[in-house]
Amino acid sequence: MIMSHEENTSGWDAIDQAMQQLYGEQEPKHYGTAIPYMLGGPDPLDGISAYAVDTPMPHWHFVTYGFSELYDKEAEDTSRSGYGFELTFRLTRTEDETEPPAWALNLLQNMGRYVFNSGNLFQPGDYLDANGPICLNSDTLLTALAFVADPDLPERMTPNGAVQFIQMVGITCRELEMIQSWNTRGFLAACESYMPKYVTDLMRNSYADIPSVIQATERGIEVDGSSTAFLFIQQLSWEPARKKLLQKNVPAKLVLGAQQATLLSSILRSRIAKKATLSLIGPEINIVFEAGDQPSVVETEREVRLTVNQQAVDELAGQLRPQASFFELPSLDKLQIEIVPTQIKDQEGNVIKTIG
């Protein structure tokens, strides 16, 4: 194990102690970083450890070193250490497997790059669409990640502040949609009997087809509504209404990608039913839906606020399908909606699928 600050490793030691309490004297497989990220190294995390665990099924239990402050305290916030968390990941292990798969280590490092480069932090309840298999070049259905508090590692106080252990869980596209329509914790709890300890299994089928999971999700949506307040949509644009001399006025037009149509319908119904807003965040415009008795459209330079009642929601949700289409909403000043095809591309930019 290579330490870059041998004089003070209190943050690192705190993670070691948490894992030792869980697994005793087991020596983990540890993968350190030769060149620190700040000195131009490719990997942002200082290290990743993997423990071989046998219950509730054979699996690897990974833990990261680097989202928190491992050495001297540098951040001004004394209540938390660094970003305030480390990631864990549980992955099924075969009986003859003596080393954890490299793709899992790369996935965790990629999470480090995402946080370090964007400044966006993970919290229990978050989710992330990977836009492809979480293990590249595999036949897995798992194309997204959910985040939940690690069931065996409670938050820990260290000399540098508090550290949460947040576990990544591989999920399918349809499971992600169910989470977005409800919430992460509720959905994962509904799946727990099929996925104890939230161990990720690349070869599993989707839980979105299991009747008990479907019923729990439908009940949860009805009682809780959707926890999704923001949807980031790449294919989103707005054309303001235009007045033409001696001609009929042209209504405003909202343009959406087909990939998001069905999901938007589900989340919008859920949010508005609970009098909660839903914001669509696009490259150049934000569209905010909010509940109100009288439908209206209010435009500013960077934002459009659409006040909708139940009639407007029904009109919109009834037309939102993953296929190219064009329609008007009579209750919203004849607002025009255009659904355009979505092209799914691989890492080289080649179109591998068209939706709509």
Rank of each mutant, 00 (worst) to 15 (best):
V297E: 09
P330N: 02
D293S: 14
L121M: 05
S10C: 10
T228S: 14
Q294G: 00
G11Y: 01
T94Y: 02
L142K: 14
E348M: 12
V163N: 09
G82P: 07
Q259R: 08
Q123P: 00
I15D: 08
G11D: 09
G349K: 08
A50K: 01
T33Q: 07
L91S: 02
S279A: 12
E222L: 13
E338M: 15
K345S: 13
Q260K: 07
G24Q: 10
S10A: 14
D129E: 11
P100D: 08
A102R: 07
R185L: 15
S331I: 14
V53M: 06
A258Y: 09
Y51E: 05
A130W: 14
S138F: 02
A258W: 03
T92N: 08
E315W: 08
V199A: 09
E218G: 14
S81E: 12
P44V: 00
R305F: 01
T354W: 10
S237T: 06
A190F: 07
Q17R: 04
G257Q: 04
P44K: 05
D139Y: 10
L263I: 02
Q336F: 12
Q343E: 15
L153Y: 03
L263A: 04
I233V: 14
S10V: 01
A324M: 14
S325K: 13
E290Q: 13
Q323H: 13
D129L: 06
Y194D: 10
Y194V: 03
E348N: 15
F289V: 11
S81Q: 11
F230N: 09
F89Q: 03
F85M: 10
R80G: 00
L320K: 09
